[in-house]
Design a protein around this nucleic acid. Structure first.
Lengths: 340, 340
DNA sequence: CTGAAAGCGCTTACAG
DNA sequence: CTGAAAGCGCTTACAG
């Protein structure tokens, strides 16, 4: 079902000009007289001429496509980042190809390769959980501009855009301390998660700064931070002798599990145990009590990632930059902690 | 930061063959001897040769890219469809470009045009709310295979993939009737929404089939179906004389507003008023009581949309097909209605 | 100010 | 079984 395609050549024939002139006129080349330019543009418009981007890209060795790889596209926070990416890319004249790695490193590798082969101008990656296999990412780095966002890693020397996890976590813990909590548990991911480690660092720092004892017993690490695990770990925390009076769950979805379990045991939130999450996902205003959490400006993260990527794409020098960009998250206080 | 690129020509030089032969060997053309084929493939592999997809696409007038336009990428249900699209496309060797129309018809038009210009092989569209401007979609239909999914319209003659809205709504209402409800309100969108109208039709049919009076007073139409509107319309429904004993909210997010408002007035759910939503979004197990709703298999919808689109792309005949594909949704009964 | 010509990397009808 | 050549639609250095 191909329609007749208008090409430069056809326009040229009709106008009795060369394709070169038509091409230049359309691209506002300075050498072309105002008169011809107008003639050409008018005809092009009236015939609904659209340049074949593939031919141009092929010629110029540039596709104006950005590749994006995310672990899980159904996460609300991820979609807000994607929205920012789409918006900014469009603004700058780039198209976006999205892939989902499903937290599978092998898939991620494959996607990286396909994108290179496909000839994207640059790649934006949010890493899978277990990114031990850093090699392929490093390799890709040599072939094509690449920037990490959200799930990043300090082992990869490139520009990275994240939220200020450590500071945001710090302020969350400080808030708990301010409302009188003294025994604050944390549910985090194991060491492989860079984001989780940053939040954990903020947790430790806040406790230290306020001279609160750090107790390994209420520092819980899980492999897979989910509502399920939130439930399980809350059960565990309730079983130990010196129960916590607050729980900092490193993601909203695990916080949901925490709250549901506390409610099951009729524990008063926040009087007996306060709860803080991280993400400001939609759950946070649906669960009762509404969840205190850190709002992460996803769109801003997405926009910035694109901005820095395009900078690298259009920068001809051969150096790989590795800026660390931290976007500010803000603590949103709701009923799962006391308002001060 | 361009790396040295391996091309067919280079391989040919090294092997002392013509590019034609190398090309054919790589594409498993039958004319090539087993021996040469192996030699070529071995070298290609060891030199990490990857074909330039743009050159090939340019040559063949095919890009192997599918364009996708959705109104709002942050909706959970949409992301599950997208996941299905990505998966199926990848399987079939296609890449996916995604755009978000933000429910803005002008944007949608622009995106349709850009995609055409970009040379995608086919387009998958979930329409904006107010698609009065059907013209551009119809125009696009002449230029490029196009399939509608989720938010569709019977005014556009092309293949459409949706859930079986009418039947699913019918079974939801029937369930309410079975648990003894006799005065069932509906909160729906205005006429412009095809999906909403289908669900409304299911509602009407179920009531008629069970000889239940239809009362306009409890048939509520809103412009924008959201949690906010769910709240407002519940307030309204509670203010009328003959209150409903059940509310069918056409989306989960509005159902959340319904439940929150009923709880505010201490109305027992489901004893006094039962609530049913539509989508089986994540809220439905977080809100209390958990929401009875229709599960929509998003991935299946996405996969089917891609399947039919590729069929059209690869079908050379000039006819536009317009199959109506309905994917079955299933009612999931939870605490917001009685389990029978 | 305009044109002829080369070339981006690939595929394929034609010839042998 | 293999090769020479044309061509996909565009841009651009070169020439005038």
């Amino acid at each position: 079902m191909k329609k007749e395609i208008i090409t430069l050549k056809k326009l040229a024939q009709i106008l009795e000009l060369s394709t070169s002139t038509v091409s230049r006129a359309l691209n506002d080349h300075q050498d072309i007289s105002e008169a011809t330019r107008k003639r050409v543009k008018n005809l092009a418009q009236s015939m609904h001429y659209v340049p074949n981007i593939f031919a141009r890209g092929f010629r110029k060795h540039k596709t104006n496509i950005i590749g994006v790889i995310v672990p899980n596209i159904t996460h609300y926070f991820t979609t807000t980042i994607v929205r920012g990416i789409l918006e900014e890319a469009k603004l700058k004249g780039y198209r976006v190809i999205i892939s989902e790695s499903n937290n599978d490193t092998a898939k991620q590798t494959e996607m990286l390769n396909t994108m290179i082969q496909f000839g994207v101008d640059g790649i934006l990656v949010s890493l899978t959980k277990m990114t031990k296999d850093i090699d392929t990412v490093l390799q890709t780095l040599n072939k094509c501009p690449l920037i990490l966002f959200d799930k990043v890693s300090n082992k990869i020397p490139c520009t990275q855009v994240t939220i200020n996890d450590e500071e945001a976590a710090y302020s969350a813990i400080e808030h708990l301390i301010n409302i009188g909590k003294k025994r604050i548990a944390i549910i985090k991911e194991r060491e492989f998660s860079y984001t989780s480690e940053k939040r954990y660092a903020g947790y430790l720092k806040a406790l230290k700064d306020h001279n609160i004892e750090i107790d390994e017993k209420i520092i819980i690490s899980v492999d897979d931070i989910s509502t399920q695990q939130g439930k399980r770990m809350t059960n565990h925390l309730l079983s130990i002798k010196k129960k916590p009076d607050a729980i900092f769950a490193i993601t909203d979805s695990s916080a949901v599990g925490v709250i549901q379990t506390l409610k099951k045991f009729n524990i008063k939130i926040p009087e007996e145990i306060a709860v803080v999450g991280f993400s400001n996902s939609r759950f946070s205003t649906i669960i009762e009590p509404n969840l205190t959490t850190v709002d992460q400006p996803g769109e801003t993260i997405g926009k910035n990632a694109v901005k820095y990527l395009i900078e690298e794409i259009e920068n001809t020098t051969d150096t790989i930059s590795n800026k660390m960009i931290e976007i500010k998250g803000t603590l949103i206080i709701r009923d799962s902690t006391f308002k001060v």
